[in-house]
Simulated scan of single mutants.
Amino acid sequence: MHFLIPGIIAYFFFKDNWKMVWLTFILTMFVDIDHLVASPIFDSNRCSINYHLLHSYYAIFLYFLLLIPSKTRIVGIGLLFHMLTDFTDCFWL
């Protein structure tokens, strides 16, 4: 879901510039850098949402604010979609 679905979203909703939008969506996955400061770095039984700093409810609120200016909207969509996919992972635990 982190790679294929953003590509489909980019293709269908941003047809004129879908490759750049998809690349931007993929680059928003760098938000996972906050996993590096967790101990352990990866825990298959841990929900990322509201555990890691950049996955906190405060950060998610800021990602919603990125939807307002048109220049940051695509980054906001990418970050929020990433949070959505991480949130769905929490239900699979």
Rank of each mutant, 00 (worst) to 15 (best):
Phe64His: 15
Ile8Cys: 05
Tyr57Ser: 14
Leu27Ser: 06
Asp43Ala: 12
Ile9Ala: 08
Met1Tyr: 00
Cys90Lys: 01
Tyr51Arg: 03
Thr28Ala: 05
His55Val: 11
Ala10Phe: 02
Ser44Asn: 11
Asp89Met: 06
Ile77Asn: 03
Ile60Pro: 05
Met20Arg: 15
Phe12Asn: 11
Tyr57Gly: 11
Asn17Asp: 15
Thr88Met: 05
Asp34Gly: 05
Lys71Asp: 09
Leu79Val: 05
Asp89Pro: 02
His52Val: 08
Ser48Gly: 04
His52Ile: 04
Pro69Val: 05
Asp16Phe: 05
Leu79Asn: 08
Phe81Lys: 08
His55Ile: 03
Leu79Ala: 10
Thr28Arg: 04
Ile68Trp: 14
Asn17Pro: 09
Thr72Trp: 13
Pro40Ile: 06
Ile5Lys: 09
Ile49Met: 07
Trp18Ile: 07
Val31Pro: 04
Phe25Cys: 01
Leu62Asp: 13
Cys47Lys: 09
Val21Ser: 07
Phe30Ile: 04
Cys47Gly: 03
Leu93Cys: 12
Gly76Tyr: 05
Ser44Arg: 10
Phe12Gln: 12
His82Arg: 02
Met83Glu: 07
Phe12Tyr: 14
Ile8Glu: 07
Thr72Tyr: 13
Phe3Trp: 14
Ala38Asn: 09
Leu65His: 12
Phe87Val: 00
Ser39Cys: 05
Leu36Trp: 00
Met83Thr: 01
Ile33Pro: 07
Phe13Arg: 00
Thr85Tyr: 02
Ile5Val: 12
Leu80Gln: 02
Ala10Gly: 09
Trp22Val: 08
Phe81Pro: 05
Tyr63Trp: 08
Thr28Cys: 13
Ala10Met: 00
Val75Gly: 01
Leu84Gly: 03
Ile68Arg: 12
Asn45Pro: 10
Arg73Asn: 12
Ile26Gln: 04
Met1Ser: 00
Tyr63His: 00
Leu62Ala: 10
Tyr51Ala: 03
Leu93Lys: 15
Asn50Trp: 07
Ser39Ile: 13
Cys47Ala: 00
Ile33Tyr: 00
Phe13Val: 01
Leu4Val: 14
Thr24Ser: 10
Ser39Lys: 12
Ser70Pro: 04
Val37Phe: 10
Phe61Met: 15
Ile41Asn: 09
His2Ala: 02
Arg73Tyr: 11
Leu67Gln: 14
Leu23Ser: 11
Leu53Met: 13
Ile41Ala: 07
Leu23Ala: 15
Phe14Cys: 02
Phe3Val: 15
Pro40Arg: 05
Phe14Glu: 01
His82Glu: 01
Ser70Thr: 02
Ile5Ser: 09
Tyr58Arg: 15
Lys71Gly: 01
His82Val: 00
Leu93Ser: 10
Asn45Tyr: 12
Trp92Met: 14
Val37Ile: 12
Phe91Gly: 03
His82Cys: 03
Met29His: 15
Ile60Gly: 00
Phe3Gln: 13
Ala59Pro: 08
Asp86Ala: 01
Met1Pro: 06
Leu79Cys: 10
Ile68Thr: 14
Phe87Glu: 04
Tyr11Leu: 15
Met20Ser: 15
His55Phe: 01
Val21Asp: 12
Ala38Cys: 10
Lys71Ser: 15
Cys90Tyr: 03
Arg73Pro: 06
Cys47Pro: 05
Phe61Asp: 12
Val21Ala: 11
Ala10Ile: 04
Val21Gly: 06
Leu23Tyr: 09
Val75Lys: 06
